[in-house]
Measured scan of single mutants.
Amino acid sequence: MSIQHFRVALIPFFAAFCLPVFAHPETLVKVKDAEDQLGARVGYIELDLNSGKILESFRPEERFPMMSTFKVLLCGAVLSRVDAGQEQLGRRIHYSQNDLVEYSPVTEKHLTDGMTVRELCSAAITMSDNTAANLLLTTIGGPKELTAFLHNMGDHVTRLDRWEPELNEAIPNDERDTTMPAAMATTLRKLLTGELLTLASRQQLIDWMEADKVAGPLLRSALPAGWFIADKSGAGERGSRGIIAALGPDGKPSRIVVIYTTGSQATMDERNRQIAEIGASLIKHW
């Protein structure tokens, strides 16, 4: 067993022997301040990774656009098919120029040779490549099948209805392509620590998230040296922004954090800054 596999296998073990965790309302004060600064709703939840206990939450059962955070769930569904012998990570998928959609920095470079399922998941999570996500959605049967996968996990809230990039439209009061912070946090925890996926697939999923290259201005910008984070960000229309993450000190994750916002007129930089400040408060009061 590799060191990384050992780390993920012992996530519940280490967490069980940690000192009790206590909620700190100071972080919620910052979440509410972010709402004021952005002029928009902000949803927040913080779960203990081992027990699933909610440590703090704000608007945990209000719907927010998922945006690209759905790509972690998508690759979880792909990995479940791999575990069941219905898919192979090494299978190569070929596609054409007509398949390319807006923001496809990886797939646009491989029109000639195609990409493997493993490479597509890596591109979808680490670079948020939209064509990679659409190609992977095709392998599982489309958005409705991802929703069905989530329902089978016990998540009857999260739903995907459309493809990239239309799913980022974020129309107010439109339930399409949305989740709730509580539902997303619980589902992410199941994917990373539950028995739904094999140990190898859980490790692969967290490795992809740990290698995320496009979430630097968010929670990662607030992390002290030595902290662990595996995350996936999302951005959408109407001032929408979000991030889902597993993080913790001492090089291992111990909490799940989900943050979503929508309806702001603020710039992307300002949305990023507010999420980073929430992260800084979380870490300060850990």
Rank of each mutant, 00 (worst) to 15 (best):
T267K: 12
L146Q: 04
I54L: 12
R202C: 09
W163A: 09
V78E: 02
S264P: 04
P253L: 10
T131N: 05
L47F: 07
S80L: 14
E210G: 08
P105M: 06
I256T: 03
A222H: 10
R202E: 08
A276Q: 11
I278F: 01
T112I: 15
E145P: 09
A183M: 11
A124V: 08
C75I: 08
L150R: 01
K284P: 03
K109A: 13
E237Y: 14
D177H: 00
N98A: 14
K213H: 10
E56G: 12
R162M: 04
I171P: 09
Y95S: 02
S128G: 02
A235D: 02
Y103N: 07
R241S: 07
D113F: 09
G52A: 07
M184R: 01
R176M: 09
Y95K: 03
M127N: 08
A34Q: 07
A170S: 14
L38G: 07
D155R: 01
E35I: 00
W227K: 00
P105L: 06
A132E: 02
G141D: 08
G141I: 04
D113W: 09
L223Q: 04
G234D: 01
L136M: 08
E166Y: 14
D161N: 08
I45W: 00
L89E: 06
F58M: 10
I259W: 03
E164L: 00
M67L: 09
I229F: 04
Q97Y: 12
G90T: 14
G52T: 06
A235S: 09
E270F: 09
V42A: 05
A133W: 00
G263E: 09
C121W: 02
D99Q: 10
G141T: 05
G194H: 11
A230F: 02
G242F: 01
T262W: 09
T116W: 04
N98G: 13
G90S: 13
S233E: 00
E56S: 11
E119V: 00
D177A: 03
D212L: 02
G248R: 04
K232N: 02
D269W: 10
R220W: 02
I171L: 15
P165M: 08
R176P: 02
S51T: 14
D83N: 06
D174G: 06
L197C: 05
P143C: 07
E119G: 10
H110I: 06
V258G: 07
S264K: 06
T178V: 04
M153W: 10
L28S: 07
D161F: 02
Y103K: 01
P25D: 14
E46S: 14
G234T: 00
V78D: 02
E26F: 11
A200N: 14
A132M: 01
E277L: 12
E119H: 08
Q274P: 05
M127C: 09
E237P: 14
G52E: 07
Y103S: 07
T262V: 12
Q86P: 07
P143W: 01
L219K: 03
K109R: 13
G39Y: 08
W208K: 01
T193G: 13
L223T: 12
R176N: 08
W208G: 02
T262D: 07
H156M: 13
T193C: 13
R255H: 06
Q37W: 14
A148W: 11
K53R: 15
L146V: 10
K109M: 14
T158P: 02
L136V: 08
M66P: 00
L55D: 04
S281I: 15
L137R: 01
I259Q: 02
E26C: 10
E87C: 06
K71H: 02
T139K: 07
M67Q: 08
L135G: 02
R91C: 05
L47A: 09
L38C: 05
L47D: 03
A280L: 14
R118V: 10
M66G: 05
A170L: 08
K213A: 11
D48E: 11
N152K: 14
L47M: 14
L135W: 01
K190H: 15
A132T: 04
Q274T: 11
G90D: 14
G52Y: 06
L137G: 04
A246D: 03
A124C: 08
D231W: 01
A183D: 07
C75M: 05
E164D: 05
I140K: 01
A84R: 13
I278L: 09
A276E: 08
G85W: 06
L197R: 06
R118C: 14
I45N: 02
E61F: 14
E46A: 11
L191S: 02
R81D: 05
L38P: 07
L188I: 15
I45C: 14
P143M: 03
Q204A: 10
V117L: 13
S104L: 01
W227D: 00
N272G: 06
H110Q: 10
E61L: 12
R273M: 11
F228V: 08
A40R: 03
I93A: 05
I54E: 09
I256H: 01
E164G: 01
A84T: 12
R176F: 08
S233H: 01
T158S: 12
R63D: 03
Q86C: 13
S233Y: 00
Y95P: 05
N168C: 07
A170W: 10
S221H: 11
R41M: 10
H285T: 12
G236E: 01
N152G: 12
A132R: 00
I125H: 04
S221Y: 10
A230Q: 01
V257W: 02
A200Y: 13
P217A: 12
R220Y: 03
Q274H: 13
T147E: 08
